[in-house]
Write a protein that binds this DNA or RNA. Structure first.
Lengths: 223, 223
DNA sequence: TGAAGACTTGACCAAACGGTCAAGATGATA
DNA sequence: TATCATCTTGACCGTTTGGTCAAGTCTTCA
């Protein structure tokens, strides 16, 4: 009863750190599959190998787990866009951005699906984050794209529309994985399919902006 | 007790027809907003102005309502792709297809979100439909695209990837409406924004395929 | 070693939910 | 108007679910 945890970010014991991580991991798996309402604390407990009561020792409620999961993946999910560098040339940067986004869809499809689920339902729990952090990030990167356009490095195109279409195409591979697998038998786990997806998206975006990519494949992996 | 309804498609009374429609309509609104698990029969009842018991008079279970909703929108949702005509030229046809898909996302965003929700969760209830009807439709239309490519009317591109990217971009405006509204303050309800979206998507797709659109705007509305 | 906290759990509770049922209201038909 | 099938509803039931609690186990450290 004395061991109040609440939302203290400081002084997590080894056990707390480990168990909170496990819960967030299991929560991500369940929430991304079944949505918020379709997920029960009990199912997360089973997924993590812990008891339901113990989950509620570390998080005060189901909603608290959900929010922790969301917060945990938000930064990593937005990282690629943050990396868009106005000093480099747009073809390289856009191709790299698409590469990163495809990579995220391949390696963290659950994160993509969780966001999709959340936004689909009106983003009731991350509205504030979107209105503040995401909005300012998108505004900032829109300005980068406008900078390229003003510099004559890029054809005129609405920056926000450009960002939306990149999001749409890349995340589609994670969000609609089931459909894609049914129709093609493949997912982004298949290296050939993944390369084909990346090539297609890159081609559409770059050409749509009047750009050309020098090197056909094999972009660097570094952020 | 004698008035068995079950799944008899024949001989629906006027009242039955009206009430089943209302339930499907209300069900679409609720299921698309909150997902299957997040929707309660009671909420659908309130939305339709009927009692919970009465809903269960017309449909044997919540799952039955859900399936009726799904079935109801499936045909109309796939209609645009069915219209892809191999005899006409690809630029016109692809532009028309994108136009239709944007139109659907604008006018039936709930249908788009319902499908997105369903697929996101592994398509547990429409897997068969996708494996059979959708797969054969996509196969057929992929062949149309390949036909264009063989005839030299279209650059070489993977037909399935092309279809996926069109789906991704157009449906994104419905599925992520909340996000788009937060970031731009607009939705497809805004005529200017809708035109901008359609122009952007059309431009990316056509250029990506090495095509040009003669007429900039104002495509016909007819199917 | 032993005490004080941190950690874990099973039993339990109230609310919400899907679904049943019997009884009443309404509409069609003669 | 009388009759019967259709339609509608409130009361009710069993299950599931989020969350509480008291009691027990394990860690840590003097």
């Amino acid at each position: 009863m004395t061991g109040r945890i609440g939302h203290a970010p400081k002084g997590l014991s080894r056990i707390q750190e480990r168990n909170r991580s496990r819960i967030i991991e299991g929560g991500l798996a369940e929430f991304s599959r079944f949505g918020y309402s379709g997920t029960t604390i009990e199912k997360i407990a089973v997924a993590t190998g812990m008891s339901k009561s113990n989950l509620l020792y570390y998080f005060s409620s189901k909603a608290a787990i959900y929010e922790a999961v969301l917060a945990h993946i938000l930064d990593v999910w937005l990282a690629p866009l943050r990396g868009l560098d106005p000093e480099k040339d747009p073809a390289t940067e856009l191709a790299a951005y698409i590469h990163q986004k495809i990579k995220m869809s391949a390696e963290l499809p659950e994160a993509s699906r969780l966001f999709a689920n959340e936004v689909l339902q009106g983003a009731p729990r991350i509205q504030r984050v979107m209105e503040e952090d995401l909005k300012s990030l998108v505004d900032e990167k829109s300005e980068v794209i406008r900078h390229w356009i003003r510099a004559g490095k890029l054809e005129a195109i609405d920056p926000v529309q450009l960002i939306f279409t990149i999001w749409a195409m890349t995340q589609h591979y994670a969000d609609f994985q089931t459909q894609i697998q049914i129709l093609t038998g493949k997912t982004l786990d298949d290296p050939d399919f993944r390369q084909e997806a990346e090539t297609t998206v890159t081609r559409l975006i770059l050409r749509g902006c009047g750009l050309e990519l020098k090197d056909g494949t094999g972009q660097g992996d570094a952020l």
